[in-house]
Amino acid sequence: MSLRLSLAGLVTGLAIAAASPALAAEGAPKPPAQSWSFSGPFGKFDRAQLQRGFKVAKEVCANCHAMSLIRFRNLAEPGGPGFTPSQVAALAASYTNIKDGPNDSGEMFERPGRPADAFPAPFANEQAARAANGGAYPPPIDMLAKARTYERGFPKFVFDIFTQYQEQGPDYIVALLTGYRDPPAGVTLLPGQNYNNFMPGHLIAMPKPLSDGQVEYPKGPDGKSPVPETVEQYAKDVAAFMVWMAEPHLEARKRLGFQVMIFLALFAGLLYFTKKKIWARLPDHASAH
């Protein structure tokens, strides 16, 4: 009957609608999926990677971007980069211009940092940041790994429920940091604009922030860094660090999650059999289905 036809038509229409966002988002390619140590149900951060990522964030990103949701003490907390408390205290004290006050004479003063202090921001406020960056605001990067994403589209987003893919943020960040290109013919850049393959609309105010060899990584026993000091590697490391900044309890969450899932699965099984037992008490149960 025609009803079935209309149902079929509806489904087809939806499928077309679902397929078209890929066409609609012109030009901006999907960021390639990276492999991350923290993905999946048993994911854990790679401590060495977080420490390298912190170094990149501290030496490069923090010159323009705030990450003030992070406190120095977080760097020594479990599930994080795994710095020791004394390393953290020394790091905090190396920032000598932490604003505090007022003191007894009513004046604000500067003092060395303590582990409880927030990571100092490079600019006092958004206006100062804009003024120093040609009108563009370098957003805080502490939450960016959760605040940036890209459209997965149907049906991928349904599969993501089961594959637990949720690393759109870091994948996008890696793609962006490695996505600087010369503008294609026909695109003229205004002053303060840069061309990036993965930026929506391709025009980005942030100049290419990373270059090979820019950040010195800790040396292994052979006197060489165990990982290459390349833009690619920097981008991955800093993106991993940004995931930790955005979700510092990720490891605890996944660990507790596994325990809860096992418990609930066993409990559900027990309840199922208990339910069968109880319903079997009905005298006419044998013939009931």
Partner: peptide
């Protein structure tokens, strides 16, 4: 079980990234 799957493994699946700005 379904609830816990989202809470522990996909906590932001049903949210929107922009709300972290």
């Amino acid at each position: 079980l379904v609830f816990a799957w989202f809470v522990f493994y996909q906590p932001n699946f049903m949210g929107h990234a922009d709300n972290y700005i």
